[in-house]
């Protein structure tokens, strides 16, 4: 675990990290008084560079780099143990989701690259087929994560037990699925920039 610098570097007002988290999640991170219950119950805290309560402290202090470059935001599996037990009812999984999506928007290099690759491949398949194609998930992951043999020893036993569907199953209305991905991304961007993306006029209008 890291040692936090005990000085606020947060920008005041709506440009600050606290304000960003509040806007994205409705959560008041200042309510956290650092009892550490979240970290005590977290199944992943021993693998994280910042324990969950430290992530909240870093948000309180506006330490953006520390938060966005942490492995914690990528290792959290949102198991909801922390939120269930928090005496101040801070929805930490929601805060983790918001920090991660912000890190992605700001194109910050993820501390857990393979975790991001996994989610990218997963969602790429859902965008394409409407459902998850498990064989494609492992194949795509191994290719992009440059781990050609990952999970390979499970492949044959799973295949012989009928656990692998070799042909992807598809949703009929795949147009709608693709539109959902597109419009969700537009709405996401719109909320960050405060401007409507879908209705925005073209950047340059020929005169």
């Amino acid at each position: 675990m890291s040692v936090l610098k005990f000085a606020s570097t947060d920008q005041p007002g709506r440009n600050g990290l606290l304000a960003l988290v509040k806007a994205k999640t409705g959560q008041d991170v200042l309510a956290c008084y650092q009892c550490g219950k979240c970290s005590a119950g977290c199944p992943l805290s021993s693998a994280m560079d910042l324990a969950p309560h430290q992530v909240l402290r870093a948000v309180q202090l506006g330490q953006r780099d520390l938060v966005f470059q942490s492995s914690a935001i990528w290792l959290c599996v949102t198991c909801q143990t922390c939120y269930t037990r928090c005496p101040q009812e801070v929805d930490l999984p929601k805060v983790m989701d918001a920090l991660r999506s912000q890190a992605i928007q700001e194109k910050i290099r993820p501390a857990e690259r393979t975790v991001k690759v996994f989610h990218d491949v997963f969602l790429g398949l859902v965008e394409r087929f409407g459902r998850l194609y498990e064989v494609g998930l492992i194949g795509g992951y191994n290719l992009l994560a440059r781990q050609p043999l990952a999970s390979a020893d499970l492949g044959l036993p799973m295949l012989t037990r009928g656990k692998l569907e070799l042909i992807p199953r598809r949703v009929k209305d795949r147009e709608q699925i693709r539109a959902i991905f597109k419009r969700a991304a537009e709405l996401e961007l719109e909320e960050i920039t405060g401007q409507s993306v879908a209705a925005a006029p073209p950047a340059s209008v020929p005169s």
């Binding site: 949102t78 989610h119 409407g130 998850l132 949703v171």
Partner: peptide, 15 residues
């Protein structure tokens, strides 16, 4: 369709 499960909330609230 896929509910997005463990991946969609990792990257996009609205998805």
């Amino acid at each position: 369709n896929c509910c997005g499960a463990s991946s969609a909330h990792m990257v996009s609230h609205w998805l």
